[in-house]
Design a protein around this nucleic acid. Structure first.
Length: 281
DNA sequence: ATGGCGACGTAACGTCGA
């Protein structure tokens, strides 16, 4: 019997508001016999003490959290029954956890990494990432974004050497190519698509990471984020800025990569859709 | 069409996201 896991990422834009949808999505995926074994969340917008451990544990998931009030905040959620040993202990489930980029002092909670051992699979190194937005190329926030990207690249080089089976999942706030933008002519040089950001994305690829989504045939105009304004979703005026990057060792094991637009259609949705990659043993 | 939506904090709007 072939063993596989589904790993996913979702920028929920406030877990306080979106918890019911996270639970619904996890439940529907499981019911459809496509359970999510690991879910990396971004933009929790809550401190650690507000995290809904109880509700998610009751649904069968264990949680590692790097929270922050108001902005940012990331988590890794794993399905207990998919683990190699059905632990209920966070310390033994999430091995070698890392919060933030080592050596890069930052108040903003944007990186959470841990190694997880699923039943039937070699250990997986999961990195839940919320890249800075950048606001606009002439802003201080953009300079922060570029500095952060360099720090990430330098850290991941080491992390990949130590953990060959690595997945980087989350909201990259970069549309890697013009086909990831609904109207590229309107976006030339702007935040999310600028030459500097795309060069930084390419440097991550050059470390030995692959954009799992582009390993498979996809329908044109596939996006992961749509502006709440201007009826962005209804017009499919979106961007593909959420990604699952896989190391070479995982790339060969990946059997599917997709964006699930369904939750974006629900009442009071996040502006991002969840993304999924399937990894075979 | 440069604001439009939505969440947050603090208490009727400003700030931020992308």
């Amino acid at each position: 019997m072939t063993k596989s896991v589904r790993i996913a990422a979702w920028n929920v834009n406030s877990l306080k508001v979106r918890l019911p949808q996270v639970l619904r999505w996890l439940g529907e995926q499981a019911k459809a016999d496509k359970p999510i074994d690991a879910l990396c969340l971004q933009e929790l917008k809550m401190s650690d003490d507000k995290y809904p451990h109880r509700e998610l544990e009751a649904a069968g998931y264990l949680n590692l959290v790097a929270g922050q009030k108001t902005y940012n905040g990331v988590a890794i959620i794993v399905r207990r029954s998919a683990l190699a040993s059905m632990s209920s202990d966070i310390e033994t489930t999430f091995i070698n956890p890392i919060r933030n980029i080592p050596g890069n002092a930052d108040e903003q909670q944007r990186i959470l990494a841990a190694t997880v051992c699923f039943s039937g699979l070699q250990p997986l190194r999961l990195v839940s990432a919320y890249f800075p937005n950048g606001q606009s190329p002439d802003s201080d926030k953009f300079a922060y974004k570029l500095g952060w990207l360099t720090a990430l690249e330098n850290w991941l080089k080491v992390e990949l050497a130590n953990n060959p089976r690595l997945a980087l999942l989350g909201d990259f706030n970069i549309a890697p190519s013009d086909i990831d933008v609904h109207d590229p002519s309107k976006w030339i040089g702007q935040n999310l698509v600028s030459v500097d950001e795309r060069a930084a994305f390419q440097r991550l690829i050059d470390l030995g990471l692959s954009d799992s989504f582009r390993m498979f045939e996809q329908v044109p105009k596939s996006f992961s984020w749509w502006d709440y304004r201007m009826m962005g979703f209804r017009r499919n005026a979106g961007m593909r800025i959420d990604h699952i990057l896989l190391s070479d060792a995982l790339k060969t094991k990946c059997s599917a990569s997709l964006i699930d637009k369904e939750p974006r259609k629900w009442e009071q949705p996040s502006d991002h859709a969840p993304i999924i990659a399937e990894i075979q043993a």
